[in-house]
Amino acid sequence: MNAAHDDATGPEGVRLQKVLAAAGVASRRVVEQYIVEGRIRVNGQTVTELGRRIDPERDLVDVDGTAVQLDVTKRYVMLNKPTGVVSSMRDESGRPDLRRFTKDYEERLYNVGRLDAETSGLLLLTNDGELAHVLAHPSFGVTKVYIAKVDGTVTPQTISTLTKGIELEDGPIAADKARLLDTSRGSSLVELTLHSGRNRIVRRMMAAVGHPVTELVRRQFGPLHLGTLPAGKTRDLSKIELGALLTLARRESGVAAAPGEQETE
């Protein structure tokens, strides 16, 4: 079999090592070593033969248990959304929207979920509609970490109340974790970890325990951390971040099969 025919895409598909090299996983030679070592799975099954061919548009591949995006046209961008910007690509009221952050990208990027105008922090932008649907669906329950500046002095008892659960107008809610970070000059900094997709949930929870939010930032979305990304800036996800995000979405995608409302915080 000559090399040209070996790399051709046909009814049998494309050689696995070619696809993974194109996806930036490693060189073909290194990928072949991964196959020999049993580190690569296709649709959940370990691949051991070097001649394996796949359909890049249909087959799901992971390396060492981490999902790989085979479609190199997909883009994944982290934005540190500033306050005063609505989570929309075009705001009907003429308010500042997300277009200013996506105009320099060739791809048509869309936001995954929403942060309300006065909440800043981590927002994911992508042209991967399937991933966006899974991650933004309320039943999916991606873990999110917020830091809230609130009025008043938050006590350890209040922190305990937040994790034990409180009753809101749309049902009970409890933080997965809550930590008091600081208290000074009549205000407190509270870190809340939640997987709820309910609208404005952090603001409503803190108001319910008597500490209205004055500033709110989302620091983490699933495996993604805002880190030192300045407000108003964007960056592409790293290979490690993308792998973690895709792995999470594939593992849980059956949960979010039905369409639903996107969260707002």
Score class of each variant (00 low, 15 high):
M1Q: 13
D6C: 14
K18L: 13
A21C: 04
A23W: 08
V25L: 09
V25A: 08
R29C: 05
V30N: 12
V30G: 08
G38C: 02
G38D: 06
R39P: 07
R39H: 10
I40L: 10
I40E: 00
N43H: 10
V47Q: 04
R52T: 15
R53N: 05
I54W: 01
P56K: 04
V61Y: 02
G65T: 04
V68W: 06
L70P: 00
V77E: 07
M78P: 01
K81T: 09
G84E: 06
V86H: 08
M89Y: 06
M89I: 13
R90G: 15
P96Q: 05
P96E: 09
P96L: 03
K103C: 09
K103M: 11
E107S: 11
E107K: 08
R108L: 10
Y110N: 09
G113R: 00
R114V: 03
S120T: 13
G121E: 02
L123E: 04
L123G: 05
L125E: 05
L125D: 05
G129I: 01
G129Y: 03
H133G: 11
L135H: 04
H137N: 14
P138E: 08
V142N: 00
V142M: 07
V145Y: 01
I147A: 05
K149P: 01
G152W: 04
T153G: 11
V154W: 02
V154P: 00
P156F: 06
Q157P: 00
S160V: 13
T163P: 07
G165F: 06
G165Q: 07
L168T: 11
D170Q: 07
D170S: 07
P172C: 02
P172H: 10
I173T: 12
R179H: 13
D182V: 04
S184K: 14
S184W: 11
S196E: 14
R200F: 01
R200S: 02
I201C: 06
V202P: 02
R203T: 09
R204H: 11
M205T: 11
G210D: 11
H211G: 06
H211N: 12
V213I: 08
P223H: 01
G232Q: 05
R235N: 09
L242Q: 07
G243C: 03
G243D: 00
G243E: 00
A257H: 14
A258R: 15
Q262Y: 13
